[in-house]
C-alpha cells in the first residue's frame, strides 16, 4: 500500500469515526503537519457529501407494509411446514393434489 492509499484509508476512517485511538491521534496530527493528508481529507469529505445524495430512504408507510407482507410470508412458510408434517403422517397420498388446490386457494384469498 502506498502512502497516499494509507492516507485515503486514514481520512475515510476519520470521517466515519472508525479509527482506533492511536490511528485517530495520528490522523489529527497529520491534519496539522501534512498538506498531502489535508488534501486527501478534503477530497474524502467532498466525496462523502456528494455520495450521500445516493441514499434512498424507505418511507415509513412502505416500511410497515413491507414488514406485514414479510410476516405474512413467514406465516405461510410456517403453516406449510407444520401442516405438511402432520398431513404426511395421517393423510393418504392420493389426497395431496386436492390439498394443493386448497392451499393455493387459501393463500390467494389471504393476499387479497
Amino acid at each position: 500500500m502506498t502512502q497516499r492509499e494509507e492516507y485515503m484509508d486514514l481520512a475515510l476512517g476519520l470521517l466515519q469515526d472508525t479509527l482506533a485511538p492511536d490511528e485517530k491521534k495520528r490522523a489529527l496530527l497529520l491534519i496539522e503537519s501534512d498538506r498531502e493528508f489535508l488534501a486527501v481529507l478534503q477530497l474524502e469529505l467532498a466525496l462523502k457529501n456528494e455520495l450521500a445524495s445516493l441514499k434512498t430512504p424507505l418511507p415509513e408507510g412502505e416500511k410497515k407494509q413491507l414488514y406485514l407482507k414479510i410476516k405474512g410470508s413467514v406465516g405461510q412458510v410456517l403453516y406449510k411446514a407444520v401442516l405438511h408434517t402432520v398431513l404426511n403422517a395421517v393423510m393418504p397420498k392420493m389426497l395431496w393434489p386436492v390439498m394443493r388446490i386448497f392451499e393455493r386457494s387459501v393463500f390467494a384469498n389471504e393476499q387479497l
Binding site: K55, T56, L58, K63, S73, V77
Partner: peptide
C-alpha cells in the same frame, strides 16, 4: 430495512422488483 432498501434501489430501477427482493431477503 433502510440499508437493504437503499442498496437495492441503488442497484435496480424497478421498485416492484426491489420490494420483491426485500421480501425474499428478509424471509
Amino acid at each position: 430495512a433502510d440499508a437493504v432498501y437503499g442498496y437495492l434501489v441503488f442497484k435496480l430501477k424497478d421498485r416492484q422488483v426491489v420490494e420483491d427482493i426485500m421480501q425474499e431477503t428478509f424471509l
